[in-house]
Amino acid sequence: MNILVCVSPVPDTTTKITFADNNTKFNTNGVQFIINPYDELALTRALEITEAQGGEVTVITVGTAGTEPIIRKALAIGAHNAIRVNLDPVDAMQVAKAIQVAVADKSFDLILTGRESIDHNGGLVAGLLAELMGMNLINVVTKIDVDGTTVTAVRDIDGGRETVSCELPAVLSAQKDLCEPRIPNMRGIMQARTKPLQVVEYSESATGTSVSSFELPPAKEGVKLIDAANAGELIDLLRTEKKLI
């Protein structure tokens, strides 16, 4: 069982988001980057599966050399080897194509991603990879079980969950509740330093989309406080001022 886990570096969840270069770039100054939380779940579940059934976990990141601390952390958590595609990606399609090309000479039974990165919130790479590589897709899953060549997963649907199954190879994207993320231990951190990290180049000039500017949401006008003793007034205000109820 060989599993590929796609790992994306994202700003820490407590980061105050600001922009630089006339609001055209995310301001990374002083920002702590972490493994995208959903990708961390995908990685942990991949390790659980290979520990039970044998096989290797490869992590892949599309990013410049600055993303290597994240890749080393994934190796410290337990991934067996890593690939970095040396590219500062512009959009999800470019990421998916870069991954497809980088792993063209390898074969994986399972490809796992997070359900989305918490910076771009695209949630597209799993679906794009499945289509590009001609694999089955199960998106946004909270449970993954592999039995022989069949994977059974529970995916989120509007207002509930659906259990689905398909043959391998397949691409699945991890949702919260899939497992408890692992924290690297000292032994893992030491081992990670010598685990193989392959750097591959990818060049494609044209991309389908590009961000022209960023904007912060408008600030709220300020809270209107209602006395707790007359709490019922809130209902009246929502009805008369906002016409919501």
Binding site: A92, G122, L124, A126, G127, I157, G208, T209
Partner: peptide, 21 residues
């Protein structure tokens, strides 16, 4: 959830650029 599962596959089939959200 279903829309987000279809959209990327469709984008590849249609050779289309895709923006979500």
């Amino acid at each position: 959830y279903n829309g987000k599962s279809i959209a990327p596959r469709l984008a590849v089939k249609r050779n289309a650029a895709i923006v979500s959200g």
